[in-house]
Design a protein around this nucleic acid. Structure first.
Length: 595
DNA sequence: GCCGTTTTCGGCCCGACTGTTTTCAGTCG
């Protein structure tokens, strides 16, 4: 939907970074940064805006509008390109290292000619950073550590980015005459938080036109290989896409095979072998008791055995004595055993969500006004919706008691005005290093709902992090722990914390844990969700939206929940408002007081 | 560069934290 907007947003952000790196006016840089954010979060399509329309986007003035227009007309921005020529792209990449900003990156470039993270790592190893002004032993160590962090997060593509591309590619290929079926498979279909590549599967009698359609895609940078059954290409941004074309009759078996996971497939094949069958991407075959025991002899065409199933996934699973298993469960975490006992969980679905309990407006760092956020939420069919702007201890947001109370009054008015959607007034509190939050109890009592999250002191040790989160759970006014580990998939490692101890506290106090649906966060992640559920923790799947398009990120939160085996009953924002309100009274924690 | 119940100039998100300094620069949320 907002693809072009994101593209332009990224270019403006790059321009802002390059202004900083080239020593330009800091306010000018910030101005472009703001415009970038605003453009990325703009709900309409930029392509449909004329010059006047562009200027109406908050933070976009004459200069920025001209640059956007230039890009829409010519596909380039001259000013950006001239800055690119001055600062190598890798120098900008260096600022991705946590703790390294533009000043340090430029210093390294000017003094040592370092223009990539790799070169910086090497220079650090060789001790060449010593003696640079402002770079002591500690800083060099931090840079090393930062590079380690970065290397752990790179090389994979975020789910939302891959999904958007995959959906477009599938639509394109499915539209080619002769294409019978087309879908993305692989880790993307399992909705893993990041993916290494995109696997697309299609059926057609003649594969050539389908392969040609992929190769002709405008973002294809190079063709790695192309034959009649498989074509691999690399996109401009480095992501690899594999297209496999199989005969229509083998669709189901191939889809299972290419969806994986590897562990799921291995276990499935084992189950087949035990039952005297053989499973491959070409189908499920009867090995035959009279054969000479060889399992490897039958080739791709099915060998000696008779084909038992291959046309649909359901058919193949059924022939193995199993119900169809949702792709989000196919990780060999007990789903095959559960399926065999017909006890697969009834997974929570996007349509089950009745509300969103963590969202922002332009009163703090959101982009859209309260009224606009509510309109969009109502369009999503929600029965309730919580507005949870930042609290004062996140100083940069400049929240005050007065602003919060004025917003509450407005929320109450709008709540009466809406039919069908109740509006809750909440806040996102800051959990400080000791586990305390922003306001005193009497002020907190005025909110319908409080999310509490960590926004600082990420580096505390395990004992301290565990203690602060447990204290937050014990606060009777804290209902939901927001983005609990604070990880950012492309940038920041999770905090070091004993989650089992924290989950136990959450279950004891009736505090829900968030599945933050922002694709950069997905926090808790699937495995943590499973562990928390074991403790009896309840969950809130929240968008943490700072703009109207971000409200739709809930699909990614649902994916995490499904991968964590959650049902409707585990997720408090699938509940009726009455049941939700009862949960928000938090009796267990109140009894636990005083601490 | 953007913006205006501070409106065409002069501000612009503010403070904590860290590591380097010995009074401050850089980074972060």
């Amino acid at each position: 939907m907002a693809r072009l907007n994101d593209e332009v947003g990224a270019l403006l952000r790059e321009y802002a970074d390059l202004i900083q790196l080239s020593g330009g006016n800091a306010f000018r840089a910030r101005s472009y940064e703001k415009a970038a954010r605003s453009v990325s979060g703009y709900p309409g399509d930029l392509a449909h805006l004329d010059d006047a329309g562009l200027r109406k986007i908050p933070g976009v003035g004459d200069s920025t509008a001209d640059k956007i227009s230039e890009y829409l007309a010519t596909g380039r921005i001259a000013a950006l390109e001239s800055l690119r020529a001055k600062i190598p792209d890798g120098v900008r990449g260096i600022t991705e290292i946590p703790g390294v900003g533009p000043k340090t990156a430029v210093l390294l470039y000017r003094k040592l000619g370092i223009k990539s993270v790799e070169e910086l790592g090497k220079a650090a190893e060789e001790g060449r950073l010593k003696g640079l002004p402002g770079l002591g032993e500690r800083t060099v160590e931090n840079i090393r550590h930062g590079i380690d962090q970065l290397s752990q997060t790179s090389g994979r593509t975020l789910l939302n980015v891959a999904l958007e591309l995959a959906e477009e590619l599938v639509a394109e290929i499915a539209a080619v005459p002769g294409c019978k079926q087309c879908a993305y498979a692989g880790s993307l279909r399992r909705m893993r938080e990041t993916v290494g590549d995109i696997d697309i599967l299609a059926t057609a009698k003649d594969s050539a036109p389908l392969m040609a359609a992929l190769i002709a895609w405008p973002e294809v940078a190079d063709v790695i290989g192309s034959g009649t059954t498989k074509t691999s290409v690399r996109m401009d941004k480095g992501l690899q896409v594999d297209l496999r074309v199989v005969p229509p009759a083998d669709w189901g078996a191939a889809l299972i095979y290419f969806t994986g996971s590897r562990a799921h497939n291995i276990k499935l094949r084992g189950r087949a072998v035990k039952a005297g069958m053989k499973l491959s991407e070409y189908g499920l075959f009867d090995v035959g008791a009279d054969e000479s025991g060889g399992l490897e002899e039958s080739g791709g065409s099915g060998g000696s055995g008779k084909k038992l199933a291959s046309r649909t996934e359901k058919e193949v699973y059924a022939a193995l004595g199993l119900p169809w298993i949702p792709p989000t469960l196919r990780e060999d975490r007990g789903e095959i055993e559960a399926a065999a006992q017909d006890s697969l969980p009834d997974l929570v679905q996007l349509k089950d969500l009745r509300g969103d309990l963590h969202t922002h407006t332009d009163l703090t760092d959101g982009l859209a006004p309260l009224e606009v956020m509510l309109e969009t939420a109502a369009d999503l069919g929600y029965a309730y919706y919580a507005v949870t702007d930042h609290a004062p201890n996140l100083v940069m947001q400049r929240m005050t008691d007065e602003k919060m109370l004025a917003q509450r009054e407005r929320v109450r008015e709008l709540d009466r005005a809406y039919r069908g959607m109740r509006v809750l007034h909440g806040t996102e509190l800051n959990i400080d290093a000791d586990g305390e939050v922003d306001w005193p109890p009497e002020f907190l009592a005025g909110f319908d709902i409080c999310v509490a999250s960590i926004h600082s002191s990420f580096g505390l040790d395990r004992a301290a992090q565990t203690r602060r989160l447990i204290r937050a759970c014990e606060n009777p006014y804290v209902h939901i722990i927001g983005h609990p580990t604070t990880r950012l998939l492309d940038r920041r490692q999770p905090i070091d914390v004993d989650l089992d101890a924290v989950f136990a506290a959450a279950a004891r106090t009736g505090t829900a844990f968030e599945i933050n649906a922002s694709p950069q966060r997905l926090d808790l992640n699937d495995e943590q969700v499973m562990a928390a559920k074991q403790h009896g923790v309840k969950f809130a799947i929240d968008s943490d939206a700072h703009s109207t398009p971000a409200l739709e990120n809930q699909r990614f939160g649902i994916a995490v929940a499904q991968r964590g085996w959650l049902t409707k009953d585990d997720v408090i924002n699938t509940w009726s408002l009455t049941r939700l309100r009862a949960f928000l009274r938090k009796p267990a924690a109140v009894e636990a007081q005083p601490r």
